[in-house]
Simulated assay, not measured.
Amino acid sequence: MDAVGVVLAAGLGTRVGADGNKAYLPLAGRSMLAWSLDTLTRLPDVARTILVFRRGEFALAHDTVRHELGDRPIEFVEGGETRHGSETNMLRHLADDIDAGTVDVVAIHDAARPLAGPEMFGRAIALARQYGGALPALPTRDLAEMRDDILQPVARRGELVRVQTPQAFRARDLLHAYRCADRDGFEGTDTSSCVERYTDVQVRIFDGRATNLKVTYARDVAVAQHLLNAPGQSPGS
């Protein structure tokens, strides 16, 4: 059985200030999406790599990948109108192989997180194989809320976290969840929310990294550029 790595690049980039899809912004000599694709295609645990591209951008996606990554065996799937829709299209692409048992884990990653290293993908896949699902997260501290125009600390029973990607899941559970969601018209906020709604998988959390930032605003581009150019800091190093 094989793991499949997926890079989602079907969004836009309004907050980052990009004219089009921010996944193609140049970072340290290559487009942002190429960093994660490069990492996935080098992992021995990942047998197949899929790029989910924005509708109408197949030529851009294909030409970018061929120019920057050569003849790497990358599959292309057209995305949907939403993140959930893009994941649904990807799972339909894989459905026959998942049902046949030749794909055991699917790891889904945002193209806007170019600094996730191979160890993060490897950890997510290994934990998903063991427990059913896994994702990296960082603790969130010093939260407060407004009550009658007064700032009050948030009382918490457990630790709140900021979820990152890659998120990895057993393929059959993931496909089942999205088939159920399609039946019910449900759209999750992220992959794990759909899995948790329709399966009994207990998604395991492991330590994320502050450097695994999501490029959302213009200032994030400069930070990511700096980290990718730093010696020993790029994902493949």
Rank of each mutant, 00 (worst) to 15 (best):
F121R: 03
F121S: 02
F121H: 11
F121Q: 00
G122S: 11
G122P: 00
G122N: 06
G122T: 14
R123Q: 15
R123V: 07
A124W: 04
A124D: 02
I125D: 00
A128L: 01
A128V: 01
Q130Y: 07
Q130K: 13
Q130R: 15
Q130I: 13
Q130D: 15
Y131N: 09
Y131F: 14
Y131T: 15
G132H: 00
G132D: 00
G132F: 04
G133H: 08
G133R: 07
G133I: 10
G133W: 05
G133P: 10
G133C: 04
G133Y: 06
A134E: 04
A134H: 02
A134G: 07
L135E: 09
L135S: 08
L135Q: 09
P136Y: 10
L138F: 08
P139Y: 11
P139W: 13
P139Q: 04
T140G: 06
T140M: 13
R141W: 13
R141F: 09
R141C: 14
D142F: 05
D142M: 11
D142T: 15
L143A: 08
L143W: 05
L143Y: 07
A144M: 08
A144D: 03
A144E: 09
A144W: 08
E145K: 10
E145P: 01
E145L: 11
E145I: 11
M146L: 10
M146Q: 10
M146S: 12
R147L: 14
R147W: 05
R147P: 07
R147F: 09
R147V: 12
D148V: 04
D148I: 02
D149A: 11
D149H: 12
I150W: 04
I150A: 12
I150S: 12
L151R: 14
L151E: 14
L151V: 07
L151Q: 14
L151N: 12
Q152E: 14
Q152G: 07
Q152R: 15
P153D: 03
P153H: 03
P153A: 01
P153V: 05
V154T: 11
V154M: 08
V154E: 13
V154Q: 05
V154N: 02
A155F: 12
R156L: 13
R156V: 11
R156A: 12
G158M: 06
E159N: 07
E159S: 05
E159Q: 15
L160P: 01
L160S: 10
L160Q: 06
L160E: 05
L160C: 03
V161I: 10
R162W: 09
R162T: 10
R162C: 09
V163R: 13
V163C: 05
V163W: 04
Q164H: 15
Q164W: 11
Q164M: 13
T165D: 08
T165Y: 06
T165P: 00
T165M: 05
T165E: 03
P166V: 02
P166T: 02
P166N: 00
P166D: 03
P166H: 02
Q167M: 15
Q167C: 05
Q167Y: 10
A168S: 12
A168F: 08
A168K: 01
A168Q: 06
F169P: 02
R170H: 04
R170D: 10
R170T: 04
A171Y: 03
R172C: 08
D173M: 08
D173H: 14
L174G: 01
L174Y: 00
L174T: 00
L175Q: 06
L175V: 00
L175K: 03
L175Y: 03
L175G: 00
L175P: 01
